[in-house]
Structure formats: structure tokens, C-alpha cells
Design a protein around this nucleic acid. Structure first.
Length: 485
RNA sequence: GGCCCCGUCGUCUAGCGGCCUAGGACUCUGGCUUCUCAAGCCAGCUACGAGGGUUCGAAUCCCUUCGGGGCUACCA
């Protein structure tokens, strides 16, 4: 019981890691860190037709980006490696052989077509479909005949009559009657292992103490336990199970590409901060217990316990993620904010990355920090400071094209031209006096026209600060060209 | 169909027999502030799936029912 906690995250990357995967990874990580245990990262690539090296590399990259660092696994190594199942084939083969020798498993010569036909018949007869045990006790002659027919054999685990009860840390005791857990395949006809074998073998051999994983694996747990038995593991040494509730899409079905963005990489490219993603995901199926919702990674590791994990599924809500991301962005220091911003500015082609440009971005950041939800919005917002050939956006041109607006712009030009000190407070003071007091205009009207002329849009960062950043020359230039539109 | 899991505001949740005429957050609506957009502040709408029990007392315990989801592969 005082065994040191070891938690594993073991995805099968058949695509980019998605929101659900990462929620699981986050809980695994948080629990390991909370208990001072080990976080193990393993790649389940027993089906190499679905898992590619690119996906594996992407999974590693995503986890690193999120800050979910692991103590054992790819790249960092560890005493229980390798951590790619495709590199552990001999281990699984040895265990499969042992299971057959012990009589726990047997060769099954049924072809997929035969199996499917029999399942169909079972369904038609309203019986539970599943392996019927045909090859459980073949005679040597039958085996010989099958071999002569050139049939491939899979290795199948024998499920004895009875039932399996295990304690789920989130759901309590769960019992499965073996009538509904048919003999299952451990090794394919081509000799490659299946998840059913590899997952149990690895968890045992790698010393995993807690299995926190998706609820979809709940019903495969009896099979896993069956393998533990065959491995000779004492019941007291079984890992503890905790099946996490699903993260679902808006339409109440399992989250997928069809009902919202699911790829973590998409969120990364859109300008969500890893800490925001983790904070939001942590709130899906877990709550700290008090009314706190904005929590740091450090607080998460301090507060996270399995007892506080919910048993019911949660819907993924991008609106709330947006809100949290905005909060996290506002909490950034200027230097942090700048570091996050620069790649977005250069990737968007708004800046090339010169020191001068970076300095300008830096001085502009404070006035947009509270105005954005994602980093991806920044280029559009600061573009007016960098564009080579400035243009007023099409739909705003009419608003500065009438007589009244022209008057405002002419007056602005006249009052600003002689200005010596080009500061936002000075600009504001001058314009308020002339446009608002002397011309008697509403601020909204007067400054709106100037805004369009200078930034090209009806929506912009605060006007006077923007003008200061733009510089006097460019401001005058833009106002002049607006007047002659 | 069978087996298993789940069921509090639109969404995420707090709640583990009396503190609940059910609290917080996001969304939404209205207002304040205001140079646009935001941010911020204030206010408001909206929930214990249903029916039976147990109990002095139930969102909290039990049963039934309805609803949702998962599994039912030589995927994981």
C-alpha cells in the first residue's frame, strides 16, 4: 500500500492527440505529480497499420508543449523500456507462449469469415455474440488437419466460467459475468500482439500502480485482469483502476472532428495557451471543491485527487475555453506575452522579425492584451502598424467619405501638424479641445472618423495610443490621403 | 438485442439527510462605464429526468422507469 505511485498515459496515436486524450493525460500527470509518484508515457502501437511515426512524434511534441513532462518514456528512457510496444514484440511473444503452455490460452484456427458468420447466427438467435469456444479443446488430429489446410492460428485467452469484480476508484465495484466476456484474442494470425495482451503485460512489467483511462475501456478490464492472473500476479499487486468520464461534443456524442475542433494542434495554432487548455480540461470531470476555477498547473498538482473526479460525462464548450484563455493572456507579463506573440506575427507575415519591429510590437502589446481571446487575433489587430501600403477597409470608406467626416479630418490634420510632442495624452488633449469642445461633436463620431483614417477600421486598439505608436509622419500621411479619398 | 456506465441551470460544476426558497463559473439578456472593440462592475433568466418508497426531514439513501453513452473486432 505504501508502494510508490506510478501512473501511465498510453495513447495509441492514430491521429493528432485530441481533447479527450489530453484530458486523460492531464489527469494521469496531475495524479502522478500530486502523489509524488512517477508519470510514465508509453506508445501503444501494436497496430502499425493505424499508428505512424509521424503521429508518435506529434504526440510527443504535443505533450511537451502542454508541459506534461514524463519521468519514463520515449526520449527520456527509463528502467522499464522500451516504451514503444512495437519494440517489445519478443516480450509479448514469450508471455503468449507461456499462457499456452499453462493452458490459459490456446490456438484458434477459425477464420474471420467463419467467426463473423457464427456471430451473425448468434445475433439472429438473440444470443450474446461472442466467441463460441469452438477451438478451446481441439484434438491433435484436428489441429493437424487445420494446419494442413494452411490455416493461420490466433492465440486466444481462455475465460473460465464465473465472474470478475473489480473496484473502480471512481465508480465503485463493477462486476462482469464471464458469459459476456468471451475468449478474446491475444495474438493475431500473423503473430503480432494485440492491445489485450500488450496493455496488461506492460502495466505489470512496468510497475504501473494506477490506471486512469477513458471510460470506453471499462468493459475491457475483466480481460486485462484475466491476463494478470495468467501472469501469476497476486491480486494485491493488481493496478488500481479509475475510469474517467468521457469528454463529449456539443451534440452529446463522443467528441470527434464532426462536432467541433478536437485536435490539440488546432488549438495550438489558433493561439490558445497550454495553461489555458489544461485549466479548462481539468474542469471537465473534475473540480477543486471550492469555487475556484482559474487554477495554475502547480495548483492542479496540489489539488488533484481521484476522489474529486466526476463519474458523469462532460460536454466540451469552446466558449468557456475562450474565456479562460482570455484570462490567462491577461495574466501574462509583458515579456511572456511578447514571446507568445512573435511567432504569430511572423507566421502571419505581418513582421519579418527585425529588432525594430519587435520593439514596436512590444510597445503595442499592453493596449491589446485585454482585447483578445486568442493569440491568433493579434496580427490582424496590429497590422495597421506595419503594413507597407495602407488601405482603409472597403466597408468603412463611406463613413469617412461624407462632408462632415472630411471636416473632422481636415481639422484634425490642421491641429496635429504643428504638434511637437507626439504622445497619446497630447494628441488626445488637442483633439478633444478642437473636435469635441470647439466643433461640438460627439466623441464617438469625431474619433470614429479619425480611427478609420488612421487604422483603416472601425475597430482598433485605443485610438490615441495607436496614433502615438504609429508615429506622427504616418498619421499625417494617412489623414491626408483619407481627406482626398 | 445483451452487458456495463451515467443522469443538478443551455454548458461545466458545488452539494455527500436538515446550513438548499439549491451556490459558483461560462453563455445569454439588460444596465453602468466608455474614443471603437474589449476588459471591468451591477442586475436578471434558467436546474435536482419521472414515479414510488425509507425518514420528523431527500438533490443527497433504496427500488422502478425513462433518457443518454460505451462495449459487444485478428481497433484501442
Amino acid at each position: 500500500m505504501d508502494k510508490k505511485v506510478k501512473v501511465r498515459f498510453a495513447p495509441s496515436p492514430s491521429g493528432d492527440l485530441h481533447v479527450g486524450n489530453i484530458r486523460t493525460a492531464l489527469f494521469d500527470w496531475a495524479y502522478a505529480r500530486h502523489t509524488g509518484g512517477t508519470f510514465l508515457f508509453r506508445i501503444e502501437d501494436t497496430d502499425r497499420s493505424r499508428v505512424t511515426d509521424e503521429y508518435i512524434a506529434a504526440a510527443i511534441d504535443t505533450l511537451k508543449w502542454l508541459g506534461l513532462t514524463w519521468d519514463e518514456g520515449p526520449e527520456v528512457g527509463g528502467a522499464n523500456g522500451p516504451y514503444l510496444q512495437s519494440q517489445r514484440l519478443d516480450i509479448y511473444a514469450d508471455w503468449a507462449r507461456k499462457f499456452i503452455d499453462q493452458g490459459d490460452a490456446y490456438f484458434c484456427y477459425c477464420t474471420p469469415d467463419e467467426l463473423e458468420a457464427r456471430r451473425e447466427a448468434q445475433r439472429a438467435a438473440n444470443e450474446a455474440p461472442g466467441y463460441d469456444g469452438k477451438c478451446r479443446d481441439l484434438s491433435p488430429q484436428e489441429i493437424k488437419d487445420y494446419k494442413e489446410q494452411g490455416r493461420e492460428a490466433v492465440v486466444r485467452m481462455r475465460m473460465p466460467a464465473g465472474e470478475t469484480t473489480f473496484h473502480d476508484e471512481i465508480r465503485g465495484d463493477v462486476t462482469f459475468d464471464h458469459k459476456f466476456v468471451p475468449d478474446f484474442v491475444l495474438v493475431r494470425g500473423d503473430g503480432s500482439p494485440l492491445y489485450t495482451l500488450a496493455v496488461a503485460v506492460d502495466d505489470v512489467m512496468m510497475g504501473v500502480t494506477h490506471i486512469l483511462r477513458g471510460e470506453d475501456l471499462l468493459s475491457s478490464t475483466p480481460r486485462q485482469i484475466r491476463v494478470y492472473q495468467a501472469m501469476g500476479l497476486a491480486k494485491a499487486d493488481y493496478p488500481l483502476f479509475a475510469h474517467l468520464p468521457f469528454v463529449m461534443g456539443q451534440d452529446n456524442t463522443k467528441l470527434s472532428k464532426r462536432n467541433g475542433e478536437v485536435s490539440i494542434d488546432w488549438y495550438r495554432k489558433a493561439g490558445y495557451l497550454p495553461e489555458a487548455i489544461c485549466n479548462y480540461l481539468a474542469l471537465l470531470g473534475w473540480a477543486p471543491g471550492d469555487d475556484r476555477e482559474n487554477i495554475t498547473m502547480k495548483e492542479l498538482t496540489e489539488l488533484f485527487t481521484i476522489e474529486k473526479v466526476n463519474s458523469s460525462p462532460a460536454r466540451f464548450d469552446m466558449k468557456k475555453l475562450d474565456a479562460i484563455n482570455g484570462d490567462k493572456i491577461r495574466a501574462l507579463t509583458l515579456d511572456e506575452f511578447l514571446a507568445w506573440t512573435l511567432p504569430f506575427m511572423t507566421n502571419a507575415g505581418v513582421i519579418s522579425g527585425s529588432d525594430q519591429e519587435i520593439a514596436l510590437v512590444r510597445s503595442a502589446l499592453p493596449i491589446i492584451q485585454e482585447r483578445i481571446v486568442t493569440l491568433g487575433e493579434i496580427p490582424q489587430m496590429l497590422k495597421f502598424l506595419f503594413v507597407k501600403k495602407f488601405q482603409v477597409e472597403e466597408e468603412s470608406i463611406p463613413k469617412i467619405n461624407d462632408g462632415a467626416a472630411k471636416e473632422v479630418l481636415k481639422r484634425t490634420l490642421a491641429d496635429l501638424s504643428p504638434l511637437q510632442e507626439w504622445s497619446h495624452s497630447e494628441i488626445e488633449a488637442v483633439l478633444r479641445k478642437s473636435l469635441i469642445e470647439e466643433m461640438g461633436l460627439k466623441p464617438r463620431i469625431a474619433f470614429g472618423a479619425v480611427r478609420i483614417a488612421v487604422t483603416g477600421s472601425t475597430i482598433s486598439p485605443p485610438l490615441f495610443e495607436s496614433m502615438e505608436l504609429l508615429g506622427k509622419t504616418l498619421c499625417i500621411e494617412r489623414i491626408e490621403s483619407a481627406i482626398s479619398l
